Amino acid sequence: MTMIRRLACQVGVATLALSILGCAENDAEDMEPRTIVVDIRNAKDLTQTLGTVTLMEDVPMGLVAVFDIDSNDVIPPGPRAIHIHENPSCAIAPTQEGGDPVPAGAAGGHFNPLHVGHGEDDGPHVGDSDAYNYEFDSDGSFSGTVRFSQASFSGETSVFQGGGTSIVIHSGTDDMRSNPAGDAGPRAACGVISAEEQQD
């Protein structure tokens, strides 16, 4: 076999190997959820759906959450705090700080896999949204985009850790300082983030 033919053969084998590797990597990527639709429910009555949030991964800029909350009498108008919390449950239960059961208490505290403080000085938590507070209309509705810059669908900051997390809309505003949760008030609405909700 001539040198040229031998070299061509080696290049052909290398190209085939890279093609197979590329396919394997693509298959692995295809298995990762890229769009998740979360039902947002009244934290006091989980049978009442208030709207949806569509979560999309925007590598390397975290997760983008597109909110479509209908008119309701649950979420007060004005600026409201929005966070990702650590547990995949919106049930009435004590919060991580303890005390009496409260609506969406089972969601636990803020999603904080990096173990930092809350707010602008010591944080933010992975579950802190970029602007912390968002303006809800006079009828309780909200259509807008919320970014969670540190959150992801995989790795150390994956929202699917431990079976999932949850999105919580509070009745108050986040002061962006107080630990552990910004003194954001009661949990008005909640939705579970789960890989089972993956969309094609």
Rank of each mutant, 00 (worst) to 15 (best):
L55G: 11
D70I: 11
L46A: 14
V74S: 06
I82D: 01
H85N: 06
A65T: 06
D122L: 09
F111S: 04
N42T: 13
P88W: 05
P79Q: 03
I84P: 05
L18G: 08
D39T: 15
P33T: 15
N72Q: 03
E29C: 11
V59T: 13
G119C: 02
D128P: 04
S129E: 03
E25P: 03
G123L: 03
M31A: 15
L16F: 10
A65Y: 03
N112V: 09
L114R: 08
L55W: 08
D100Y: 00
V38S: 13
L18E: 07
L16C: 09
G78T: 00
I69F: 07
D39G: 15
T35W: 10
V37D: 14
T15S: 12
A104Y: 01
E57G: 11
G78Q: 01
V102E: 00
P33M: 12
D100A: 02
A107V: 04
C90Q: 02
V66F: 09
C90V: 06
E29N: 12
P113G: 08
A91Q: 05
D58L: 10
H85D: 08
V74W: 02
R34I: 14
G51L: 09
M31G: 15
G109M: 04
M56G: 15
P113T: 09
V59S: 10
H110F: 07
M31I: 15
E29Y: 11
P101N: 01
E97R: 00
D122F: 09
E29M: 10
P94A: 00
D58V: 09
D130Y: 07
F111Y: 11
L21N: 10
C23E: 12
P77E: 03
P94Y: 00
T95S: 00
H85E: 05
P101C: 05
V37A: 15
